[in-house]
């Protein structure tokens, strides 16, 4: 940042100031303070305009995404582990296991970002506040696609192929919400590790969506 003032700003200021200086050498008292004030204002303005080299701030979209997506992923892990333990169909159990392990790994990654950025895993903002129109997407306190406590309880209690079908329905809905959130951070963040991870999650979850929809069809009617 300071390099700027040396190479860029310094030479930049030379020309415009030097010219009037030569022309009015008789009355220096008037323009000198004015020039100094203008210089200070310019400096503040440049400081304001220069992009921050630092890490995302506490209420940045990146931090909000890391926190909220951790919460969102946590539920996918929970549903995945329930289905991995309880589902009947081998493909559904494989899918459930894959989703649970992948998303648990991604939670670890997002928690590591927050540590790297010297931010708390807990924020002061309400869920989805980082996302444009995010507050409107919160339903009954839950982020997009998240299962309600009652649906989770159903999943814990379901038996036979009903378990498989309910898992598929809830996880498809969960993925749709998750993809929506990942796309939102792609549109607002330039932080490379965040956008790359979001893109990866979108790609993975879209493939899984297709697979789960095919599985749903093969298992027959939804519960």
């Amino acid at each position: 940042m300071t390099l700027t003032y040396d190479e860029g700003a310094a030479t930049a200021v030379d020309d415009p100031i030097a010219e009037p200086a030569a022309g009015r050498s008789g009355r220096p008292g008037y323009w000198l303070p004015v020039a100094l004030v203008v210089g200070l204002l310019l400096g503040v303005a440049i400081g304001y305009l220069i992009p921050r080299g630092g890490t995302p701030a506490d209420n940045s979209p990146e931090a909000g995404f890391a926190r909220d997506m951790s919460t969102h992923h946590t539920q996918a892990v929970e549903m995945g582990m329930i289905a991995y333990t309880r589902a009947t169909n081998a493909d559904v159990r494989t899918m459930a296991r894959d989703i649970a392990l992948t998303q648990q790994g991604q939670i670890g990654m997002m928690q590591a970002w927050l540590q790297e950025w010297n931010l708390s895993p807990t924020g002061s903002q309400p869920p989805m506040a980082w996302m444009p129109d995010g507050a409107a997407a919160v339903r009954n306190g839950l982020m997009p696609g998240m299962a309600t406590p009652a649906e989770l309880e159903q999943l814990r209690q379901a038996t036979g192929l009903d378990e498989d079908r309910l898992f598929l329905r809830l996880m498809i809905q969960h993925h749709l919400g998750g993809i929506h959130m990942s796309q939102a951070v792609l549109g607002t963040s330039k932080e490379k590790e965040v956008t790359e991870a979001a893109q990866l999650a979108i790609n993975n979850q879209q493939r899984e969506l297709t697979d789960m929809q095919a599985l749903e069809k093969s298992l027959g009617a939804k519960p």
Partner: peptide, 26 residues
């Protein structure tokens, strides 16, 4: 009389102060 260079130097220093000050404050 030749205050031009002083002014230039002063302005440059103030710009630097502004930039650094803003960054630190932020």
């Amino acid at each position: 009389r030749n205050l031009g260079p002083i002014a230039v130097a002063g302005v440059v220093v103030l710009i630097a102060v502004g930039i650094i000050g803003y960054a630190v404050f932020g």
